[in-house]
């Protein structure tokens, strides 16, 4: 599963993208939904949990937490940015 990172998520995770071999995500099974992915990433990278708002897109569409995901989906983490 490839996760593209934007804004401050790049800084929190320390790279422009994240590639997760799905079988090691949780030890047993990979996250089945956007919400599970959010939880998993929050545990691994606590900085992400502190963001008040973090949009997650699946295949270039904004996704709600209940949305199902598969290993071949293209995910993006999109935080708000404020600079101008």
């Amino acid at each position: 599963m490839t996760i593209k990172l934007f804004g401050v998520t790049k800084d929190i995770i320390g790279s422009p993208s994240l590639s997760l071999p799905t079988n090691v995500l949780t030890g047993k099974s990979s996250p089945k939904t956007v919400g599970e992915l959010r939880q998993f990433l929050g545990k691994t990278y606590p900085g992400l949990k502190e963001l008040s708002s973090l949009a997650i897109a699946v295949n270039n569409s904004y996704a709600q937490d209940a949305e199902e995901i598969n290993s071949y989906d293209e995910i993006a983490l999109i935080p708000p940015v404020s600079g101008g």
Binding site: V8, E50, S52, S53, A55, Y62, I78, P80, G83
Partner: peptide, 18 residues
């Protein structure tokens, strides 16, 4: 609709800092 809640003051760095 994209970002429901406003970030707190130290969450996201601005151009002054970044």
């Amino acid at each position: 609709c994209l970002f429901p809640k406003m970030p707190g003051p130290n969450e996201i760095p601005n151009c002054d800092v970044n």
